[in-house]
Simulated assay, not measured.
Amino acid sequence: MNLYENKRRWNYLLLVAAMIIAATSLWYTDLLVRGISKSERTRAEVWSQSFKKMFETDNEEMMNYLFTVKDSLVVPAIVTDDKDSIITYTALDTTKTFYKIDTGRVYDPAYFLRQLKSMKAQHEAIPIEMNGKVKYVYYKDSFLLTQLRVFPYIQLSIIGLFLMTAYLIFNSSRRTEQNQVWVGLAKETAHQLGTPISSLMAWVELLKDKFDAEDDPLIQQMENDVKRLEIVADRFSKIGSRPILTSHPVYQTIKDYVDYFSIRVSDKISFEVTGDQNQEALLNVPLFDWVIENLLKNAVNAIEGEGKISVNITENIAKQQIYIDVCDTGKGVPRSKFEAIFQPGFTTRKRGWGLGLSLTRRIIENYHKGQIFVKESELGKGTTFRIIIKSSLNYVPTIR
């Protein structure tokens, strides 16, 4: 299992674990809510019976006892007749009243009607028979029970927000640390390559002089490879630094690299560069060549046996953008992997590092302020990557 797949697997496991914890918390809270709700129903029924008995007894001691029981079991409740007319109420807002004769509080019948509607929505009425008529007791959840219903969602939201913040901070810190390591490693690699490259350049010049082989094609290819090594070292030295972009012809830049690359792969794979040859864009050529190299290598690896790789360059004049489509006739990419293939560590090869396309996206988006994505792909038929970069049509170089 490659690095990307392993990371994704752990992400799924952590997500499942979080869902289990959340579900367990909600289940247990629901269990508590049901228990308390059942208890409050019992209290409401006892309160209803106490209220009824108060009107049926003349015994003063029993009356005092019933008052004590009723007050100890108080719940927000309203008693109505069969026409929903409010007879009395308890444990509601003490600053308001339903009766005009109570001048010490605010007369607000609308408030009690809203409370009655809320109680009806929450619980079934408790019928009680008084003086041969049926009265109905409506009640609602206590403040504690209402809080308990909402609390787990608030708790999980706070925990989720905390974990997300912690993850983002940790991830940012880890990325910064990784970037520093990679930048340091890249610059050290460039430094280490410098000495042998200089020696190779000297040896090539010595071979030319000694054997009078200035025009020898083998020596020229050796010289091209040494220059290529020099470009690679220059690429590594630029990692972590802000590259300088200058206006270059896009077609010729790509054509030069394709010509270099094509003679170093199998003859069974053909190459073609087509499109507008006059358009220019702001490029850092060594880094942009790296992009084309990664896409071409990716295309070559996708082709099994014979195949074709083509690069087509078009322009969107209205948006002042240049489109570069790199097409191959390889095995294709599943649609579900269109974004995943740009993630660090994602690879379909046993010996791959999974960094090529990730670096490609970083170079295009971060350094050239463009876009790169999988335009289309079909399994068994091939893939097309599209690069979008700004045209330098109106570019005016800075004079220093």
Score class of each variant (00 low, 15 high):
Val333Lys: 03
Leu282Ile: 00
Lys381Glu: 03
Val46Pro: 09
Leu144Lys: 12
Thr195Arg: 13
Asp212Lys: 13
Tyr251Arg: 02
Ile101Gln: 10
Lys140Asn: 15
Lys255Cys: 03
Tyr111Cys: 05
Val226Lys: 05
Ala17Glu: 02
Thr24Cys: 13
Phe338Met: 00
Leu218Ala: 12
Pro397Lys: 04
Leu168Lys: 12
Tyr260Asp: 09
Asn298Leu: 02
Ala281Met: 04
Arg228Trp: 09
Asp276Ser: 08
Gly104Ala: 10
Thr195Trp: 12
Arg235Trp: 06
Asp256Gly: 07
Leu66Cys: 03
Ile154Ser: 11
Ser270Phe: 03
Asp289Pro: 12
Lys308Ser: 08
Lys227Cys: 10
Leu357Lys: 05
Phe288Cys: 00
Phe271Lys: 01
Val311Arg: 06
Arg349Met: 13
Thr97Ala: 07
Arg264Asn: 06
Ile363Trp: 05
Asn312Val: 03
Gly275Trp: 02
Gln252Thr: 14
Gly370Tyr: 02
Gln321Gly: 10
Glu376Gly: 04
Phe211Cys: 06
Ala233Leu: 00
Leu393Glu: 13
Ala190Asn: 01
Ser157Thr: 06
Ser48Asn: 07
Asn394Ile: 09
Gly132Val: 00
Arg335Trp: 13
Glu280Lys: 15
Phe170Ser: 14
Ile219Cys: 01
Ile341Tyr: 03
Trp10Asp: 15
Ser118Phe: 13
Asp256Glu: 14
Ile364Asp: 09
Asn11Arg: 13
Ile219Pro: 05
Val183Arg: 15
Arg362Asn: 12
Asp259Ile: 00
Leu287Ile: 01
Asp82Leu: 12
Leu379Glu: 13
Met119Trp: 08
Gln192Gly: 06
Leu206Asp: 14
Asp81His: 00
Asn366Ile: 04
Pro286Phe: 04
Glu223Ala: 15
Ser247Thr: 00
Lys319Asn: 15
Met1Pro: 07
Met222Ile: 11
Arg351Cys: 13
Asp328Leu: 07
Tyr89Trp: 11
Asp30Ile: 06
Ser142Trp: 05
Arg228Tyr: 11
Ile21Glu: 07
Ile20Gly: 01
Tyr99Gln: 11
Arg361Gly: 09
